[in-house]
C-alpha cells in the first residue's frame, strides 16, 4: 500500500520531503495541496505507481525550465491531478 510503504522506507520519504522543500515557493504550494488532496482521495498506488515521486520530478523539471507552476499544470489543478490518477483505483472509488 502506497503511503504506508513509503513511510516504512523512512529514508526515502525524508529524502522525498527534502526535495519538496527545495522547490520554488509556487511549486511547493501546489505540490503540498496536491499531496493533501491525494492523501484524501487515496489512490492505492500513490507511491508504487510513482505518482508522488513522478510529480516531484515533473515539478523540478518545470522549475528548472523557469516556468510558472500554473503554466505547467493548467489553472484547474484538480483536473490535472485527476488526469494523473485516472485508471488507478482509489479508496474513494471503492466507496
Amino acid at each position: 500500500m502506497g503511503v504506508r510503504d513509503l513511510i516504512e522506507g523512512k529514508k526515502q520519504w525524508r529524502a522525498h520531503v527534502a526535495r519538496v522543500k527545495a522547490l520554488p515557493p509556487d511549486y511547493r504550494i501546489v505540490y503540498d495541496e496536491i499531496q493533501r488532496y491525494l492523501f484524501k482521495v487515496g489512490p492505492v498506488d500513490l507511491i508504487d505507481g510513482g505518482v508522488l515521486p513522478g510529480l516531484l520530478d515533473f515539478f523540478e523539471e518545470g522549475a528548472a525550465a523557469g516556468r510558472r507552476v500554473l503554466d505547467v499544470t493548467g489553472a484547474d489543478v484538480a483536473a490535472f491531478v485527476d488526469g494523473l490518477i485516472k485508471g488507478s483505483p482509489t479508496y474513494a472509488d471503492a466507496d
Binding site: 503511503v3 504506508r4 488532496y37 492523501f39 484524501k40 487515496g42 482509489t90 474513494a92 471503492a94 466507496d95
Partner: peptide, 17 residues
C-alpha cells in the same frame, strides 16, 4: 488517513477538488 489506507466517502471528492 493515507497511512491507515482509508479515505472519506467518494461523494466528498468534488468538495476536495
Amino acid at each position: 488517513a493515507a497511512l491507515a489506507g482509508e479515505a472519506g466517502a467518494g461523494n466528498y471528492r468534488d468538495r476536495w477538488r
